[in-house]
C-alpha cells in the first residue's frame, strides 16, 4: 500500500532542517555566550563574568540611546496603532466600494517600498522643514517611525476584524446599542488582541530600525541600533554582545507576555 507522502521521511531532510536551525540560532547563541566573556575578545573565551553588562549599564551613551529608542518606539507605536485601527475599521466595516483595493494598496505599499528610498525622501523633506522652522527635535524621528510602522500595525488588526462575525455587531445594534456603544462593548473588546499584536509589531519594528533612523536623525540623536552600528566601526568589545543580549531578553519577555495575554482572552 502506498504510504502518504511525508516530507520528513525524505533522505537528507533532517540534515537540511538541522542546518537551517543552526544558521538561525547558532550565531545568536555565540553572541549571548560571549556577552559573558571575562576577556575583551569576541573569539577567545577567558571565563564567565558580568563585566560587560556592568560596563554597558554604566555607559552614559548607551543609556541615553536606549531611552531615546524607547521614547521613539513607544510614541511611534501608539500613534501608528491608533491610525492603523481606524484604517482597519474603515476598510472592513464598510460595504465594498470602488477604490477599496487601491486603498489597501496605499496602506500596505510602504512594506514594498525599499527602505532606503523612504529614507532619502524623508531626509530631503525634513531638511527643508528644518530650515524653514528651525525645529531639530525628536519629532522627525517619531514621525518617520510612525509612517513605516502603520502597515505593520494594520496587518494583524485587519486580520482580526475580518475574522470577526459581523453578526456580533448586528446583534449589539439589535439590542439597542448605538454605533458608539457597539464599538465600545463589542468591537473593541474582541479587537483588543489584534490591536495589541499590531502595537507590539510596530514597537519592535521601530526599536530596531537603522536605515531610516540613520538618514533622518540630527546630530546627537543616536538610537540604540545606530549607536551600536557606530561602535562597530571602532574596536569592538563584548559590551555590544551584552547590549544585544539584554535587547533579546526584552523581546522574548514582551512576546511571551503578549502570547499569554491573548491566549487568556480567547
Amino acid at each position: 500500500m502506498a504510504r502518504p507522502f511525508d516530507v520528513r521521511r525524505q533522505r537528507g531532510f533532517t540534515l537540511i532542517a538541522a542546518f537551517c536551525f543552526a544558521l538561525l540560532y547558532l550565531p545568536i547563541a555565540v553572541l549571548v555566550v560571549y556577552a559573558f566573556n571575562a576577556g575583551p575578545s569576541l573569539s577567545r573565551w577567558e571565563g564567565v563574568s558580568l563585566r560587560w553588562f556592568v560596563a554597558a549599564a554604566n555607559n552614559a551613551q548607551v543609556i541615553e540611546a536606549s531611552i531615546r529608542s524607547l521614547q521613539i518606539a513607544v510614541s511611534a507605536a501608539v500613534v501608528a496603532t491608533a491610525a492603523a485601527t481606524l484604517a482597519a475599521l474603515a476598510t472592513t466595516r464598510t460595504p465594498p466600494y470602488r477604490g477599496l483595493t487601491t486603498t489597501y494598496a496605499a496602506i500596505n505599499l510602504p512594506l514594498m517600498v525599499p527602505e532606503i528610498v523612504t529614507a532619502v525622501a524623508l531626509l530631503i523633506v525634513f531638511a527643508r522643514i528644518k530650515m524653514a522652522t528651525g525645529y531639530t527635535g525628536l519629532g522627525y524621528l517619531i514621525a518617520a517611525h510612525t509612517a513605516f510602522c502603520i502597515p505593520f500595525a494594520y496587518l494583524p488588526i485587519r486580520a482580526r476584524l475580518e475574522g470577526m462575525d459581523l453578526n456580533l455587531e448586528r446583534a449589539a445594534a439589535d439590542l439597542y446599542a448605538t454605533p458608539l456603544r457597539t464599538f465600545r462593548h463589542v468591537t473593541l473588546p474582541l479587537l483588543w488582541p489584534g490591536i495589541l499584536a499590531g502595537f507590539m509589531l510596530a514597537f519592535v519594528i521601530s526599536l530596531d530600525d537603522v536605515v531610516i533612523t540613520e538618514f533622518v536623525k540630527s546630530g546627537g540623536q543616536d538610537t540604540l541600533p545606530t549607536y551600536m552600528l557606530g561602535q562597530l566601526r571602532r574596536a569592538i568589545t563584548p559590551e555590544m554582545n551584552a547590549i544585544s543580549t539584554v535587547f533579546l531578553a526584552l523581546s522574548i519577555v514582551v512576546v511571551t507576555v503578549f502570547f499569554l495575554v491573548s491566549r487568556k482572552r480567547d
Binding site: 462575525d165 453578526n167 456580533l168 448586528r170 446583534a171 449589539a172 445594534a173 439589535d174 439590542l175 439597542y176 446599542a177 448605538t178 454605533p179 457597539t182 463589542v186 473588546p189 474582541l190 482572552r265
Partner: peptide, 20 residues
C-alpha cells in the same frame, strides 16, 4: 429607523452570542 431604535429583537441563525 436604525435597528437600535426598533423594539424588535433577533435570534440569529448562528446565535451571534458575544464570546467575551
Amino acid at each position: 429607523t436604525p435597528p437600535f431604535r426598533r423594539p424588535i429583537n433577533t435570534v440569529f441563525q448562528n446565535y451571534a452570542l458575544f464570546p467575551h
